[in-house]
């Protein structure tokens, strides 16, 4: 589904958020990304869902070279990818039904979209999706009146009605309690499994990552630290991922992945 070669993203301020990532993801595969805050997970997902361009390297979506896309072909490619964001990214003033149906926009004409704001089209579809995430009664509630967890579920319902080939879930359970978090991750996995959708998920909870996914990718400082089957993940892997400490090398990695020479480090004050 995806193939990335030396994919990098440098922001205009010079910060390299994603740094030469090689990645291959098969259709229907379920993969989770873990890594400390600021590792570049969100940035990577924003490249994968065709929101921001890479600054170097190549990215293929289903064999389609991404940088060549524009206009209607770009829109069509985006329609095939559904994203659930870290912050829900819903329109607060709209009713839930419109936020859910926004998943259909890629298929609707502008006229149909306008008309649906007055008289919602495909209400049954929206209702079905909300039923699936457990809040059907909120169909006509205003979105900003919902709790954080309920909004998270609206975002999932939006992806359900979009019916994409790939689901990118960027930390989809950040604002919900542990029990609900587990059931939402399970739900997303079910959705992916039953219709063969590729599922990529960023998770802060290592526990959830380990218990739901077969393949785990560890991201740190914009680089892939490991990409392996869950069964092969060890304590060492995780310690290195989150603390930057590895048993082999004694020098910590800096932003650009170089080890800082000892001489460049500030001297301890106490000396």
């Amino acid at each position: 589904m995806y193939r990335a070669e030396k994919l990098s993203k440098m922001f205009p301020d010079g910060l390299v958020a994603v740094d030469g990532i090689d990645l291959a993801i098969k259709k229907g595969e379920q993969v989770t990304f873990i890594g400390p805050s600021g590792a570049g997970k969100t940035t990577l997902f924003r490249m994968l869902n065709l929101t921001i361009p890479s600054t170097s390297g190549r990215l293929f979506l289903d064999g389609l070279e991404v940088p060549g896309l524009s206009g209607p072909r770009l829109k069509e490619a985006r329609r095939r990818i559904g994203t659930i964001y870290q912050q829900q990214n819903l329109v607060p003033r709209l009713k839930v039904v419109h936020n859910v149906l926004a998943g259909r926009l890629g298929l609707w004409s502008t006229g149909a979209a306008l008309f649906s704001l007055v008289r919602p089209a495909e209400v049954e579809r929206a209702y079905g999706a909300l039923q699936r995430v457990g809040i059907p009664e909120k169909l006509f509630a205003r979105t900003d009146e919902l709790s954080g967890g309920q909004q998270q579920r609206v975002a999932i319902a939006r992806v359900l009605v979009q019916d994409p080939e790939v689901i990118l879930a960027d930390e989809p359970v950040s604002s919900v309690d542990p029990t609900l978090a587990t059931s939402l991750v399970r739900l997303l996995k079910e959705i992916s499994t039953e219709s063969g959708k590729t599922l990529l998920m960023n998770l802060h909870s290592v526990e959830l990552a380990l218990s739901f996914f077969q393949r785990i990718i560890g991201l740190r400082d914009g680089k892939i630290l490991f990409d392996s089957a869950t069964a092969e993940i060890t304590e060492e892997h995780l310690r290195e991922l989150y603390t930057g400490w590895s048993p082999e090398g004694d020098a910590p990695l800096d932003r650009n992945g170089h080890t800082t020479p000892l001489s460049c480090r500030p001297l301890p004050r106490a000396l």
């Binding site: 990214n89 890629g106 979209a113």
Partner: peptide, 27 residues
């Protein structure tokens, strides 16, 4: 952020105006 999310579903500019920009700016 909501505009980015709408765009990611494959919505057109005008649709983003209708579903994201105008509702937020309305008041």
């Amino acid at each position: 952020k909501p505009l980015e999310a709408l765009q990611a579903t494959g919505a057109s500019k005008l649709q983003i105006v209708l579903y994201g920009l105008l509702p937020q700016a309305f008041p």
